[in-house]
Amino acid sequence: MSTETANAGTGAAGSADGERTYSVDNPAPVIAPPRARTGKTPKATRGNFEMHTWLFMRLSGIVLVVLVLGHLLIQLVLDGGVTKIGFAFVAGRWASPFWQVWDLLMLWLAMLHGANGLRTVVNDYAERDNTRFWLKMLLYTATVFTVLLGTLVIFTFDPNIR
């Protein structure tokens, strides 16, 4: 929480000689509450965006439990575990549209789920509007980049690459 007390000019007031600086007629500034309405306070929002993201988190979470646990089981446990994974293994799996859809769905849901989770964390913890904006821009850029790159790979994968 922001603890700016706007007394930067009275640097000496911090310690024991505060008595000399503040009096009944000149009280110290108090810390403004976060919810104080100011000119910069955003207007109430219309629309259901937050509801849809909230619902998306629940639904994608349920689907991801199946997708991710299944993915981990296949990749790391069954059929000799992690040692079997190689170019041939991936090429063999992506020959089937089922696994293409599985991986594509997992990529999109996991990225959007994680990005939205981080978005709420940034919204909750960023103190200044500028910090919040740039952190979210960084987050969105990384998300879009990863999703697009992954999608491109899944759709254009060529097992006969040399």
Binding site: T5, T10, A13, G14, G18, E19, Y22, S23, A28, P29
Partner: peptide
């Protein structure tokens, strides 16, 4: 015998 540790703030005396 109980000790009460109370957070005091008086803007007319100190900002802290």
């Amino acid at each position: 015998t109980v000790t009460f540790r109370i957070r005091r703030f008086n803007p007319e005396v100190s900002a802290d």
